[in-house]
């Protein structure tokens, strides 16, 4: 006689655990279980912020202040090196660095927090069975929530800037802003995919995360943030497409700085990297996640 099941029937009644010969587990049940537990990911993101006091008022200010100050430093560096001439150009440069850095930070936070999510979730992984991809997914949600408040800050800087430099090139409100959700989604997907990849690597090589901090620094300089995509000519433009965040950051400057909709190649490039990151990272992660409990 089975005992009474008072809760909703949240695991299929009969479960079979077998050695895995196939590289991937059956994906439909995997995603069903994943979807059923999506609140776990959102709550974990909320609780993680709580644990770091990021849900407090000052915590939120800090989240914005950090990239903002960094953007200021980079802006000073760039203007000093380039010896910027007109004041209008100054605002454009600042705006470009700001929005580029905010967007890059979103991806970077997805990846760095996601990469640690498995090794940091040790006990949870040793003691409960659930689709492990929920942990990096939760980091992505958390990174998104940290990214959101930077947008009003950016808009505030532009509005104030336009007040003082009315002739600036930075656009006001245009229909092109409708591209913003698409851009954010592409950054989120690319970040999540790469988080899956590095989270798996981090289980096998515990210094992956250290390596990652150097890599993201270099990646930042290789990305069109401190420089504009329009500065590249000819085959140098390839540098944009070889960078997983290149196309989507170009789209960012098109929409926010140049006030135009991104070109088709840019859109396709963004889509390609998002899809590639999710498929490649997802395969790498899901095919190995059943070993995580043994290796934690």
């Amino acid at each position: 006689m089975p005992g009474p099941v008072k809760n909703s029937d949240f695991v299929s009644k009969i479960q079979v655990f077998e050695p895995h010969k196939a590289a991937l587990p059956p994906l439909v049940p995997y995603f069903k279980e994943f979807w059923k537990r999506r609140t776990f990911a959102t709550e974990l993101a909320r609780f993680a912020d709580k644990a770091e006091y990021l849900d407090s008022k000052f915590g939120k200010v800090w989240l914005v202040l950090n990239p903002l100050l960094l953007a200021m430093v980079y802006f000073l560096l760039v203007t000093v090196i380039r010896g910027s001439s007109s004041k209008n150009l100054g605002l454009t440069t600042l705006a470009h660095i700001l929005i580029g850095l905010f967007t890059f930070y979103f991806a970077q936070n997805c990846i760095s927090a996601g990469a640690q999510s498995i090794t940091a979730g040790g006990r949870l992984i040793l003691n409960q069975a659930f689709p492990r991809a929920l942990l990096p997914f939760s980091s992505t949600i958390s990174a998104f929530q940290q990214f959101l408040p930077t947008i009003p800050v950016y808009i505030f800087v532009i509005v104030v800037g336009k007040h003082f430099f009315p002739t600036t090139q930075v656009p006001g409100l245009t229909w092109n802003y409708l591209w913003v959700p698409f851009i954010v989604l592409m950054v989120g997907l690319t970040g999540f995919g790469l988080a899956l990849l590095f989270a798996t690597m981090n289980v096998y090589f515990r210094d992956t995360n250290k390596l990652l901090t150097y890599m993201t620094r270099i990646w930042l300089y290789l990305s069109p943030i401190l420089w504009q995509p329009s500065m590249l000519h000819g085959w140098h433009k390839m540098a944009i497409y070889l960078n997983p965040l290149g196309p989507v950051l170009s789209a960012t400057s098109d929409v926010w700085i140049n006030g135009k909709s991104p070109s088709l190649t840019i859109i396709l490039g963004s889509l390609f990297w998002a899809a590639f990151a999710i498929l490649f990272g997802g395969y790498f992660f899901i095919s190995r996640e059943r070993d995580f409990a043994v290796r934690i």
């Binding site: 299929s12 059956p26 659930f130 689709p131």
Partner: peptide
């Protein structure tokens, strides 16, 4: 993980 197998 909880994935039902296809074998009877």
């Amino acid at each position: 993980m909880r994935y039902a197998s296809k074998a009877p």
